[in-house]
Simulated assay, not measured.
Amino acid sequence: MASEDNRDANSAMTYTEMMNEGKQRRKDEKMSTNSEITQRIEELERRVDHLQKVIQRQLRIGKDG
């Protein structure tokens, strides 16, 4: 039993296994990049909202002043 487990751990990957591993890594990297982009978009949207509020406040102050 132990020798069978050891044989699987030490065996070389087939061409298909290598290709699938490469695809999986690229997929993981792509998902990570997409996550980073999504976080960046959310941060930029928060900044835009803040700037819009500041501009609206300044416009109100200018009309009142």
Rank of each mutant, 00 (worst) to 15 (best):
29 E>T: 02
26 R>F: 12
61 I>Y: 05
11 S>P: 02
25 R>C: 03
22 G>N: 10
48 V>P: 01
12 A>H: 04
12 A>C: 01
38 T>Y: 10
45 E>T: 00
23 K>N: 13
32 S>E: 12
56 Q>W: 06
61 I>P: 01
14 T>D: 08
20 N>V: 06
36 E>W: 03
21 E>A: 14
29 E>F: 02
51 L>Q: 02
53 K>S: 08
27 K>V: 02
11 S>K: 15
10 N>W: 05
61 I>F: 06
7 R>E: 12
52 Q>W: 03
40 R>A: 14
17 E>M: 14
16 T>H: 12
48 V>G: 01
17 E>I: 06
43 E>N: 08
26 R>E: 10
45 E>G: 01
17 E>L: 09
44 L>W: 02
14 T>F: 14
22 G>S: 13
40 R>D: 09
38 T>D: 14
23 K>H: 09
23 K>R: 14
63 K>V: 07
34 N>R: 11
9 A>T: 04
24 Q>N: 13
58 Q>C: 06
31 M>W: 12
54 V>T: 08
12 A>M: 07
65 G>N: 09
43 E>C: 04
41 I>L: 11
38 T>A: 15
26 R>M: 06
63 K>I: 07
33 T>S: 10
30 K>D: 06
16 T>E: 15
1 M>A: 05
46 R>L: 07
37 I>K: 13
16 T>Y: 11
18 M>A: 08
52 Q>I: 01
23 K>S: 10
9 A>P: 05
59 L>H: 00
18 M>I: 06
